[in-house]
Amino acid sequence: MCTLEKRGHVYVLTLTGSGEHRLNPTLLTSIRSHLARIRSDTASDPNRPAALVTAAEGKFFSNGFDLAWAYSGSTSAADRRRMTELHRRLVADLVSLPMPTVAAVTGHASAAGVILALSHDYLLMRADRGFLYMSEIDIGLKISMVDYFDKVLCAKIRDAGTRRDVLLRAAKMTAREGVRRGLVDRAVEGGLERVVEEAVKLAEEMAMRGWNGEVYKKVRMATMPEVWKVIGEEEGEVAQSKL
């Protein structure tokens, strides 16, 4: 599912395997468990240097919600609500994590996978492969049914024309186009390993600034007020999913 390692002051959380890293309750729970461990490790000293990098093996960063699982005959509406609620709580975990965060997008990211990437402070992306793709209009899924998606997109994509293209044209943004449009901080040459290396380097630089983690998270939350209103103004207080 995923692994957690430490490189210097940086926690590296990696979605493992060669699959699409579809976000179902099992994977979402695994990611959240690792984030809880990071939070526990750093709770005693908010001034301890720390940062997070999230990466993935294979050709996908994450291909979004596990729709094959969600709409199989054995999956109930309650199961689907649990999946979206877990994803919502994962976004809340990242927005309230008391340290800088970097997404190392090493392959394709679609729909809920894009939201996962954009929930980090910085987004580095492999230059020679992969795209960011909000697929809802292509697959006939109403984005309003997952009500925090639009809040994250509005917070992270300030240009209205870019939001239109992402949502109403289902544009597949490469790394270089993402940099030009302001979704991606850096397009990294050299393959998967190089993206992770550059993400860890950036995260280490941020960690060594010596910021207080509790202050950092409060400032981050203040930059995303509409997101926080939807996912929970108090940690652990998360609104009900509508899916």
Rank of each mutant, 00 (worst) to 15 (best):
residue 129 R to V: 01
residue 180 R to Q: 12
residue 127 A to L: 05
residue 145 M to R: 15
residue 154 C to R: 14
residue 181 R to C: 10
residue 165 D to P: 01
residue 123 L to S: 07
residue 176 R to P: 00
residue 158 R to G: 14
residue 138 D to W: 00
residue 172 K to Q: 13
residue 156 K to V: 07
residue 162 T to R: 01
residue 175 A to T: 03
residue 124 L to N: 02
residue 169 R to L: 14
residue 153 L to E: 07
residue 138 D to C: 06
residue 172 K to W: 04
residue 149 F to I: 08
residue 178 G to Q: 02
residue 139 I to E: 11
residue 156 K to F: 08
residue 181 R to H: 14
residue 133 Y to A: 04
residue 170 A to Y: 04
residue 173 M to Y: 13
residue 159 D to I: 06
residue 155 A to H: 10
residue 125 M to K: 10
residue 168 L to I: 06
residue 124 L to E: 03
residue 174 T to P: 02
residue 146 V to W: 02
residue 153 L to R: 05
residue 146 V to I: 13
residue 178 G to K: 02
residue 144 S to N: 05
residue 162 T to V: 15
residue 149 F to G: 03
residue 156 K to R: 15
residue 128 D to F: 00
residue 126 R to A: 05
residue 133 Y to H: 14
residue 153 L to N: 06
residue 160 A to K: 12
residue 153 L to D: 04
residue 161 G to H: 02
residue 171 A to I: 05
residue 154 C to V: 07
residue 148 Y to F: 15
residue 152 V to I: 15
residue 146 V to F: 09
residue 137 I to C: 07
residue 167 L to I: 15
residue 137 I to H: 11
residue 167 L to E: 11
residue 180 R to K: 13
residue 141 L to N: 08
residue 137 I to D: 08
residue 136 E to C: 13
residue 119 S to H: 07
residue 179 V to D: 04
residue 139 I to D: 10
residue 135 S to M: 07
residue 133 Y to M: 05
residue 118 L to Q: 07
residue 148 Y to A: 00
residue 154 C to M: 08
residue 161 G to W: 00
residue 167 L to S: 03
residue 150 D to Y: 13
residue 121 D to R: 09
residue 157 I to Y: 07
residue 167 L to R: 12
residue 158 R to A: 15
residue 173 M to A: 12
residue 157 I to D: 07
residue 164 R to D: 15
residue 131 F to C: 07
residue 165 D to W: 01
residue 155 A to N: 13
residue 138 D to I: 03
residue 124 L to G: 04
residue 118 L to I: 09
residue 167 L to N: 09
residue 167 L to D: 02
residue 158 R to Q: 12
residue 181 R to I: 03
residue 177 E to T: 08
residue 120 H to A: 12
residue 138 D to V: 07
residue 166 V to G: 00
residue 150 D to N: 12
residue 155 A to I: 04
residue 151 K to H: 11
residue 144 S to A: 10
residue 141 L to V: 11
residue 165 D to Y: 00
residue 175 A to F: 01
residue 130 G to Q: 05
residue 127 A to M: 05
residue 134 M to A: 06
residue 169 R to Q: 13
residue 162 T to K: 02
residue 146 V to K: 06
residue 123 L to P: 00
residue 144 S to R: 14
residue 181 R to N: 12
residue 150 D to W: 09
